[in-house]
Design a binder for these strands. Structure first.
Length: 469
RNA sequence: GCGGCCAUAGUUUAGCGGUAAAACACGAGUUUGUGGCACUUGGGUCCUGGGUUCGACUCCCAGUGGCCGCCCCA
C-alpha cells in the first residue's frame, strides 16, 4: 500500500480517536511518574543486583535476619520517633488519610517500622542482640536533585538489646564493609556522641545560652532553629553560622561519665578495627531519637566534595518511647541510589549476570512447536538458551544470535524436526554438525565445557556489540 | 521553601516564523534453510495549555517535568 495512503488512514484514525476521547472527556495518561520518582530500567539493574548481593551477604555474615515491614504506617509512629520538630516530619512526609479515616504516611525511613514490629511481635524474646536487616523504598517529599529522589531505596541494619559499645563499632564496621565491598574508594567515617537524655539536656541548655549570645550573627533559619532544634545550628552550612558553631561548646566535652566512657571505648574499638574515622563534633543527624553514638559514611577525596552515603546511630530510648521495654539499640541506613552513583563515579563493577552461550533457532511450523519444548528441556538441564521464536527467517535469527555473542547456535528446521535431529553451529568457525535430539543435552554440555571451543569474542573478524552494554 | 539552566524519534543531538533532520539503537526486507559489512524501508501530538501571527517546533506567558546550586538529608 502506498505510504501516502497509509499516512492518511493513520491520521484519520488518530483524529477519530481524539474526538472520541473528547466526547468521553478522558484526560491523557501522564507518561511519566510523579516528580522525584523514577523507573529502574533493565540497564541499571546490574548495579542494583550488586548492591543487593553485597548488602545481603554482609547481613547474613554478621548475623542479621531479614525483616520486611509495610511501606505505610500510622502517622504518629513517625511523629513520635523521628520528632515533631524535624524537617522530615514538618515538611517531607507523605501523609494522607485512608478511606476509613486512619491517618497514615509512607515511611520516610525504616527504623520506626522495624521498632514497631520488634515490639509488636515480641522479638525481644530472641537471643540478644536481635539483628534485623531490611531494604526497600522510603519516601520524602523533598526537592529532587543529584542523588536525591522522593522515592528512594535504603538498606537498613538494626540491632536491639545490646548497650556495649563493641556493637557500635561492629555496626560501623558493617557500614564500612558494605561500601568497601561495592568497590567505592575513599570512604570517610564521621563519628560523634550526642550523649544520653540527661547530659544532652545539660548540653542543650549550655548551647542555647551560647547561641543566644551570638544570635545576631546567625542566619534566619538558624534563628528559628534556636527555638525548635538548636542542635541543628551546628550543621548549618552558612559561613557566619559555621563560624559561630566552630566556637560553640561541643557535646563531646559535656558528656556524663557513662556516655564519655561509651564513646571512649567505641573509639578504641574503631582503632582496633583500623577504620578510617574522624571525630566530627558538628555531626548531629536529623532525627530526634538518637542517643550517644551517631555516625555518617561519606565518600569523596580528602578536601574534595563530600557526599553522604548513609548514617545512623544509637537510639537507646526509642523502643521504650514507642511503648516497648527499655531496650538499647543501634542502627544505620544507606541510600542505594547514592551507593550506585558513587559506584559509577569510581567505575566499580556492577554484577554481571551469566549470559546465554547458545541460541536456539527454528524454521517452519513443526520446528517451532518442537523448539518450544526443546528450550524447556535445555533449561531444565541448567543450560541457558537465548531464542527469538517470533522471528520467521533463519537469517534474522542468526543476526540476533550473533549480536548476543553466543558460541553455539542450534538450528531446528523442518527436516531436523522430522529426523529428530538438531544442527549445532559453531558461531566462530561456522562449522556445523548434526546431532540426535536425544544426545543434544550431553553434547551441548560437553561442548560448552571444552576449552577449545573458539568463543565468538576471540574471533578477530567479528565486532562484538554487546560487550559495552 | 528559594535561585539558575533546560525540554525535538528509544538515545544523543541539529534545525528554521511556512506542517521536521542526522547518528546510533530498534523492526521489516535485499527471492529458494545460515550471522558480522553494505543497501532499501518503517516509526515523531517537535513536553502541555494559552497568546502574537495569514501561518508557531521556532517568538511571548503560564503550567508540568528534568538537571544543578542553597536548605536538608539517603
Amino acid at each position: 500500500m502506498p505510504r501516502k495512503i497509509v499516512k492518511k488512514i493513520k491520521k484519520a484514525v488518530t483524529k477519530k480517536s481524539k474526538s472520541e476521547m473528547k466526547v468521553k472527556e478522558l484526560e491523557p495518561v501522564m507518561l511519566q511518574p510523579p516528580r522525584g520518582m523514577k523507573d529502574i530500567l533493565p540497564g541499571e539493574q546490574p548495579y542494583w543486583e550488586q548492591v543487593r548481593r553485597v548488602t545481603e551477604r554482609l547481613a547474613r555474615d554478621y548475623g542479621f535476619s531479614r525483616i520486611d515491614t509495610p511501606v505505610v504506617e500510622f502517622n504518629n509512629l513517625f511523629n513520635r520517633s523521628i520528632g515533631e520538630g524535624t524537617d522530615i516530619i514538618e515538611k517531607e512526609m507523605y501523609s494522607f488519610a485512608t478511606k476509613g479515616g486512619d491517618k497514615v504516611a509512607l515511611r520516610p525511613e525504616m527504623t520506626a517500622g522495624t521498632c514497631r514490629a520488634y515490639i509488636q511481635h515480641g522479638l525481644h524474646l530472641l537471643p540478644k542482640p536481635v539483628k534485623l536487616f531490611s531494604t526497600g523504598p522510603v519516601y520524602r517529599y523533598d526537592r529532587p536533585q543529584e542523588g536525591r529522589y522522593r522515592e528512594f531505596y535504603q538498606v537498613n541494619y538494626d540491632a536491639f538489646g545490646e548497650q556495649d559499645p563493641v556493637l557500635d563499632a561492629q555496626m560501623i564496621q558493617v557500614a564500612y564493609r558494605v561500601v568497601q565491598n561495592l568497590g567505592i574508594k575513599s570512604i570517610q567515617i564521621q563519628v560523634n556522641s550526642i550523649g544520653c537524655p540527661t547530659c544532652r539536656k545539660e548540653y542543650k541548655d549550655l548551647l542555647v545560652n551560647y547561641l543566644e549570645s551570638k544570635k545576631n550573627k546567625l542566619c534566619q533559619d538558624c534563628k528559628r532553629r534556636l527555638e525548635t532544634n538548636p542542635l541543628r545550628v551546628l550543621d548549618c552550612k552558612e559561613d557566619k553560622c559555621s563560624q559561630v558553631a566552630a566556637a560553640a561548646p561541643q557535646s563531646v566535652d559535656h558528656l556524663c561519665d557513662d556516655c564519655r566512657n561509651h564513646f571512649k571505648n567505641l573509639l578504641e574499638y574503631l582503632d582496633e578495627l583500623d577504620l578510617p574515622y574522624a571525630i566530627n563534633p558538628q555531626l548531629v543527624r536529623g532525627l530526634d531519637y538518637y542517643t550517644k553514638t551517631v555516625f555518617e559514611i561519606w565518600s569523596g577525596e580528602e578536601g574534595g566534595r563530600k557526599f553522604s552515603l548513609g548514617g545512623g546511630g544509637r537510639y537507646d530510648g526509642l523502643v521504650k518511647m514507642l511503648g516497648g521495654e527499655n531496650t538499647p539499640a543501634i542502627g544505620f541506613g544507606l541510600g542505594v541510589e547514592r551507593l550506585i552513583l558513587e559506584m559509577k563515579r569510581v567505575q566499580a563493577k556492577p554484577y554481571r549476570a551469566p549470559k546465554p552461550r547458545i541460541f536456539l533457532a527454528q524454521l517452519g511450523d513443526l520446528a517451532k512447536k518442537k523448539s518450544l519444548k526443546l528450550f524447556s528441556e535445555l533449561e531444565k538441564n541448567g543450560i541457558l538458551v537465548a531464542e527469538s521464536f517470533g522471528r520467521g527467517s533463519l537469517k534474522a535469527q542468526l543476526r540476533v544470535a550473533d549480536k548476543l555473542g553466543v558460541e553455539l547456535t542450534l538450528i531446528l528446521g523442518q527436516k531436523e524436526a522430522l529426523d529428530r535431529t538438531v544442527i549445532i553451529k559453531n558461531m566462530a568457525s561456522g562449522v556445523q554438525e548434526i546431532v540426535s535430539v536425544d544426545k543434544l543435552v550431553d553434547v551441548v554440555k560437553k561442548k560448552l565445557k571444552t576449552d577449545n571451543v573458539v568463543t565468538y569474542h576471540d574471533n578477530g573478524n567479528h565486532n562484538n556489540h554487546s560487550e559495552n552494554k
